[in-house]
Structure formats: structure tokens, C-alpha cells
Amino acid sequence: MRIIDAKGKACPMPVIMAKQAISEGETAFTILVDNTTAVGNLQRLAGNQGFDAAVTEGEGVYSLAFVKNGDAPAPAAEDAAPAACGAGYSVFVGRDIIGSGDRELGTNLMRMFFYTLAQSDDLPRSILFMNAGVKLPTEDEQVIEHLKALVEKGVEVQVCGTCLNFYGLSDKLAVGTVSNMYDIVSQMQAAAKVITV
């Protein structure tokens, strides 16, 4: 059985190497990687390409045994691959307006930002609200509506609980989940890039 050595390869190489093997018609192969991000990306790839991928670990090396399982590849598998590999992007919102300057203009820009994001095809994996940013998923009806549409499309919305508490908004969260620094930092680390608004 073919063994693909992807140890030491940065994302997205392990996924590209696995996809290459699949496209060459391999139905059973093993790929070796040395980090858990690559393991997660490869498992997602396996899932949407109709493969099982059992993981074994030894001395910091993860071995994934790809075996075709008869499931049809997901129709959107091609599209899903870059997201699975690059781990997408996160949006960090640390304030309730965009930019500094006029508040009203900044509020308008923020609403239009989320309108545009919700209409876009390239969605973030997560949107993270902190400090005055938490006023948006609690008090801004227009932004709340856009966020609900994004959540429905699978975007994770995490809102800093400490900040909700500070602003007395804990019982007003209209969309998303109450989160904490650990989960928010994890989301940032898992994303290929973080866009700060």
C-alpha cells in the first residue's frame, strides 16, 4: 500500500498530497503527518471524499489510513477542500463601529459589512466578538439578522462572556454562543487568517 510522507509539510501540502493520490484512483493509502491541524484537515477531506481515515499516533507522527468506504463524495467536495485545508478565516470584532471617527457613519459601515459578509460565498469559519463588539449581537437588530443568516450557513459566532457581563448584556444575546478567551484564541489559531474589523 502506498505511503505518503507529509511530515514537516505545512498546510495545505498534506491535503494536496492526499487529494493527488485520490485523483490518481488510490482507494487505500496511508499518509503520515506530524501535527494535529493536518490530521483534522485530512479527516475532513476523507469525510467529503467518501473515505474512512483511521488515525494512529506514535512518537509525534500521525498515520492516517485512508480507505474508500463506498460513500459518494460530497457534491461540494471540490469547493470544500480549500476551506478544509486553509482552515478558512475568522473575523474579529473588537468594537461596535468600523474605524474611528463619526459614530453614525461607523455604525452604518458595520451594518453594511455584515450585510455584505452574509451575502458572500466565501464565508468565515467564525466571527468573534469582544469588548464593545458584543453590543452588535445583542442590540443591533440589523447585524443580528445578518449574523443569524451566517449561523444558518454554518458560521460559528462566539461572543465574549466577560464582555457581555461587563456591559450588562448577558441576558440579551440574540445570536451566537457565549464564549471565553480560551475558545476565542483557539478559533484564531485554527484560522489561516484573522480579519480584524
Binding site: 453614525e104 457613519l105 452604518n108 451594518r111 453594511m112 455584505t116 439578522e145
Partner: peptide, 22 residues
């Protein structure tokens, strides 16, 4: 003008449902 857009929102607020968009 942007100030016209902002003024109009104040007029419409609470009267009809609307969203702002680019």
C-alpha cells in the same frame, strides 16, 4: 450624500422595516 442616508434612516426608523446595505 452619506449624511442624507443617515438622515433618511432616522425618518424611517420605527415606521417601516429596512436594512442598510452597500
Amino acid at each position: 450624500s452619506s449624511s442624507g442616508a443617515i438622515q433618511a434612516q432616522k425618518v424611517l426608523k420605527g415606521q417601516v422595516p429596512f436594512q442598510i446595505m452597500p
